Amino acid sequence: MSSWMIYGANGYTGELIAREAKRRNLRPVLAGRHRERIERLAGELTLPCRVFSLDDPLEAAKQVSGMSLVLNCAGPFSATSAPMIEACLQARAHYLDITGEIGVFEHAHALDARARDAGVVLCPGVGFDVIPTDCVASALKAALPDAITLRLGFDSRSGFSPGTAKTSVEGLAQGGKVRRDGRIVTVPLAYQVRRIDFGDGEKLAMSIPWGDVATAYYSTGIPNIEVYIPATPGMVSNLRRANYLQWLLRMKAVQAFLKRRIEKSVRGPDEQTRNRLPTHVWGEATNAGGQKKTARIKTANGYSLSVAGALAMAEFVLSHAPEGGYYTPSLLAGADLVARLPGSGPLVLE
C-alpha cells in the first residue's frame, strides 16, 4: 500500500485500528497531538509516527504532505474533521474518518466540488458509523426504488468509548435530528417512539440524531429519514426531560466539565466484551402506496466492525484510485460492503 496515516492513533478506536493494521503487515504512519502516547505506541508496533496538532492549517498540510490517504480517528470530529479535511485537500490526500456526526457529513458533502477538482476522496463515516446502516439503506433503495420514507436502526450493547461518549454529550445539546422532505430538521430528543424487531426480538425504540440522517439521503435520495435504537421507558423519559435543559447543555463550561468526567471514567469495552456482543442492524423503507421492505443484518460488535470497516475502506481507496469527490461508504464500495466484513451474516430482505 501507498504511504498513509492514522491520525488519532492513540485514541481507543484509533489504537485498535493501528494494532490490527500491524497484524496485517500494513505500515501506516501513526499520528496525533499527544507526543508521549503516539511515540510509545509507534515504538511498540515499530511503525513510523508524526506528532502535530490541527491548530495550524499550514503545519497540518505540511505533515500530511506525502500521504496518499489519512484515516482520521481523533474525535470529537466536530473539532478535528474540518481542519484535517482542509489539510488533505491542500496536500491532495484522500480523507476517511470514523465519525457519526451529522455536521461532519454535511460539511464534507459541501466540499464535493473542491474534492473533485483536487482528485481527493472525502468519505467520512467508515466505521460502525455509518457502514452497516448505510449499506442497509442502499439495499432497501434497490429493493423499493420509489421509497419515500426510510427508517434505520441498530441494537448494540457494548458501551461507549471516550470519544463516542464526548460526541454524545455534544449531541444532547443539539437536540434530535430527522430528515423531512429532503431537509434535515431539528426535533426534540426521543422525538419518535415505537416498537422494532432489530433482529433479536421486538423492543421499545426511540429516534436518535444518527449520521444516516445525512448520509442515507446521499446514498438513496429518499427524502424522509429517521434512525432508532432500543430504549427503556426510563431512557425515553430522561431524554425528553433533557429537552428542557438544552440551554444548559450548550454552555461551554458544562460541556467541558462533562467531557473531563468522561476522560476520567470511560474506557471503552475490552476485547472479551467486544467479542461476545454482536450488533443487530435493521431498516424499513416505505413508498407512497404503503408498500414496505424490511432489511436486517447481524454484524460484529460496533468497535470491531469499525476496525475492519476502516481498514477495508482504506485498502479499497488506495487500491482502486476512485475519482475525487464526496462519497458515503456504500456509494464508494458497494451496498454489500457490510456483508463482506468479518463477523457479518447475510443481509436479509423481506
Rank of each mutant, 00 (worst) to 15 (best):
V130K: 09
R24G: 13
R37L: 10
F198H: 02
Q174D: 12
I297C: 02
V136N: 02
L150D: 01
G159E: 06
A339G: 02
A108G: 08
L204D: 14
D212M: 02
R261T: 13
H94A: 10
K259Q: 03
L152C: 12
L54G: 07
V64H: 00
I229F: 08
K264R: 15
R250D: 08
R180C: 11
V254M: 05
A321T: 08
W282V: 04
G302R: 03
G290W: 11
V348M: 08
A18G: 07
R33G: 10
S319P: 00
G153Y: 00
Q90E: 14
I102E: 00
H94R: 04
E226S: 10
R240V: 01
Q174V: 11
S68Q: 14
E170W: 10
G119V: 13
E170P: 01
R24M: 10
M313F: 05
E202T: 03
P132C: 13
E226V: 01
R151W: 04
K166N: 08
Q90N: 12
D181E: 11
D197E: 09
V178W: 02
R151S: 11
E86H: 15
A60E: 09
I208Y: 00
E170F: 05
G119A: 11
N275P: 09
G324N: 13
Q255N: 15
K298F: 06
G127W: 02
A139Q: 03
I229E: 11
N243K: 05
R40A: 15
G324M: 09
C49D: 08
D134V: 12
P269Y: 03
G290N: 03
L341P: 02
Q63M: 14
R23M: 09
Q192E: 15
G302F: 03
M313T: 05
T294L: 07
R114F: 10
D55V: 05
R267V: 10
F257Q: 11
W282R: 06
L337S: 01
G199C: 13
G14D: 05
G283R: 05
L111F: 07
V70E: 00
L69T: 06
R35G: 12
V126K: 04
L58Q: 15
W247N: 08
G234F: 13
I229M: 13
G199Q: 09
A143H: 06
R50M: 10
A339S: 11
G289S: 14
S207P: 03
L96E: 08
K141Y: 02
V29S: 00
G290Y: 09
A137L: 03
G343P: 14
T80G: 10
